[in-house]
């Protein structure tokens, strides 16, 4: 009984999110279904960083490599007629997992600022490698021949794609909030709180951190695959460091150590972007100011309230 109010908000939000396509149809604003899908997908991608930062305290600045890498491979496979999601998606994820394992083995030797920078450098490496590879379409990116077939769903229908993305994102969020209560989750949190102590208590810290890094990368990769379905295109932007930065910023403004942080961040950032684009030719200027205001909200509140008090 006690937990009922606790569950009320997530259930209400889930219901609202599920019915969004009908609301939009009723308002005759179907155009915004694409935006809604993008928000859900970016929320998933940012959540992967909340997992990494929130559970084991690693600030990854190279998740574009996994997001974009999986996006490219899934688009590439359609060029060869691999339309089945049951085949192409796991393949793309497997590739992401291998990539994350290799990058993780190198990066996890470092911590703090060094970890931030080395993950960034690896992501750049992947970016240049893929953009320079002629088969990947260079600066133009790689078009998706057609959306994947995922019977019994029909992903060519925008609504079904939205629901699929929503279901996957919801499933990941539920899984993570459950994970936080399991022995594995506790061990990861222990590593975040005091890595040295965990090692002294007999936990093999490195493999456990690697596991967290790889799982996080797989979630980012899944988001990348979904995004290609939505945009019909894997583009170099998905691999660029600004995407890594954008995902990190989303994870941060929603609360880095909260499981729902990425969802909040993606909502705030993408809605602000859409809205500001209508108002100004330079929307990112205002987004930049918004980020500053969010980071300094404590100081701002004090200044404003302090003056009122006088």
């Amino acid at each position: 009984m006690k937990r009922l109010p606790h569950l009320l908000l997530p259930v209400a939000l889930g219901l609202f999110a599920t019915t969004v396509p009908w609301w939009l149809a009723w308002l005759e604003q179907d155009y915004y279904l694409g935006l809604a899908t993008r928000i859900v997908i970016y929320a998933l991608a940012a959540t992967s960083l909340n997992l990494l930062i929130g559970f084991s305290g690693m600030v990854g600045f190279g998740h574009a490599a996994f997001f974009g890498g999986a996006a490219y491979l899934s688009a590439y496979l359609t060029q060869y007629g691999w339309y089945s999601a049951w085949v192409a998606w796991p393949l793309s994820l497997a590739f992401t997992g291998v990539l994350a394992t290799i990058i993780g083995l190198f990066s996890l030797r470092t911590r703090g600022v060094h970890f931030i920078m080395i993950t960034l450098a690896f992501a750049q490496m992947i970016h240049y490698a893929i953009v320079a590879w002629p088969a990947a379409g260079g600066d133009d990116g790689l078009p998706l021949v057609q959306r994947s077939s995922l019977p019994p769903l029909d992903l060519a229908d925008d609504r079904q794609l939205y629901w699929l993305a929503l279901a996957l994102t919801g499933a990941v969020l539920l899984a993570l909030s459950y994970l936080a209560r399991t022995p594995l989750g506790h061990a990861w949190i222990g590593i975040r709180e005091n890595e040295r102590r965990m090692a002294a208590l007999g936990f093999p810290v490195l493999p456990m951190k690697l596991a967290c890094f790889v799982v996080s990368s797989l979630i980012a990769g899944l988001a990348g695959i979904l995004l290609v379905q939505q945009t019909g295109m894997a583009s170099p932007t998905h691999l660029s460091w600004t995407t890594s930065g954008q995902l990190l910023v989303m994870a941060l403004i929603g609360g880095a150590q909260r499981i729902t942080g990425g969802v909040k961040g993606a909502l705030i950032l993408l809605l602000a972007e859409e809205w500001l684009a209508h108002l100004s030719a330079y929307p990112h200027f205002w987004i930049g100011l918004l980020l500053l205001a969010l980071a300094f909200r404590g100081e701002l509140a004090r200044t404003i309230l302090g003056e009122k008090g006088r």
Binding site: P183, L184, G185, A187, I189, E193, N194, M198, L201
Partner: peptide, 26 residues
Amino acid sequence: QLFPRLSALENVALALPARRRHRYVF
């Protein structure tokens, strides 16, 4: 060397051999 934000109980629980053995249980 403690886990500052975890409860005393959880600090000790993390040290138990059972937690070491079940470290990948999710």
